[in-house]
């Protein structure tokens, strides 16, 4: 499997360009597997990392766990509370509203087969980290500075809860099939 034709003979050493680098790299090339992996480990540890903002977001996830979430109760569901006339027009998107302390979460289920989405609005508006949880799964996302967000929904209807984090405040909606 190993093709030796490119590894050069003894005369590979007398290239004049950058003799020091060449020597050092050449020495690395002579190391056995374990020693070469050890050298590589030292390099990977310093450079093979995600961008700082990605690391920061991962570290920030910890508050999901430590903070007690406030429950946002389901306040309105167009599926169970049809519009005032008593007739729910076919093909109308389903709309749900959740209320907690000072936060209102309004969501619309965009039921396009193969590309179901949850489109939502937070009031008062503002950025927030979001996590849509089902029993087995979680999708993360973010609300923009106007409080708007879009999250991918699983293909089937599953009991779900939306977690909203703004700074230290975490709100969790009641579990409903979405």
């Amino acid at each position: 499997m190993v093709d030796d034709s490119t590894s050069g003979g003894p005369d590979g050493l007398d290239d004049p360009t950058t003799p020091d680098d060449r020597d050092e790299l050449g020495e690395l090339g002579e190391l056995d597997d374990d020693a070469l992996l050890a050298a590589l480990a030292g390099v990977l540890e310093r450079v093979s990392t995600p961008p700082p903002e990605v690391l920061e977001a991962a570290a920030g996830l910890f508050t999901w766990r430590t903070v007690d979430a406030e429950l946002a109760e389901l306040d309105y569901d167009s599926l169970v509370a049809p519009p005032e006339l008593g007739v729910r027009a076919a093909g109308q998107p389903r709309i749900l509203t959740f209320e907690a302390g000072g936060l209102t979460v309004e969501v619309e289920v965009d039921d396009v087969p193969g590309a179901r989405r949850l489109i939502g609005q937070l009031t008062p508006p503002g950025r927030a980290d979001l996590e849509l949880r089902t029993a087995a799964d979680a999708v993360v996302g973010r609300a923009d500075e106007l409080g708007r967000f879009v999250l991918d929904l699983p293909a089937g209807k599953l009991r779900s809860s939306l977690r909203i984090r703004r700074g230290e405040d975490v709100t969790e909606t009641a579990w409903v099939p979405l």
Partner: peptide, 24 residues
């Protein structure tokens, strides 16, 4: 095991050939 050995061998070759232009 074999893939690890093959990848390390490639790495060695790249190290030895560094500075000698493109490596096959």
């Amino acid at each position: 095991g074999p893939t690890r050995a093959r990848c390390l061998e490639r790495l060695r070759r790249l190290l030895v050939d560094d500075g000698n232009g493109p490596v096959a």
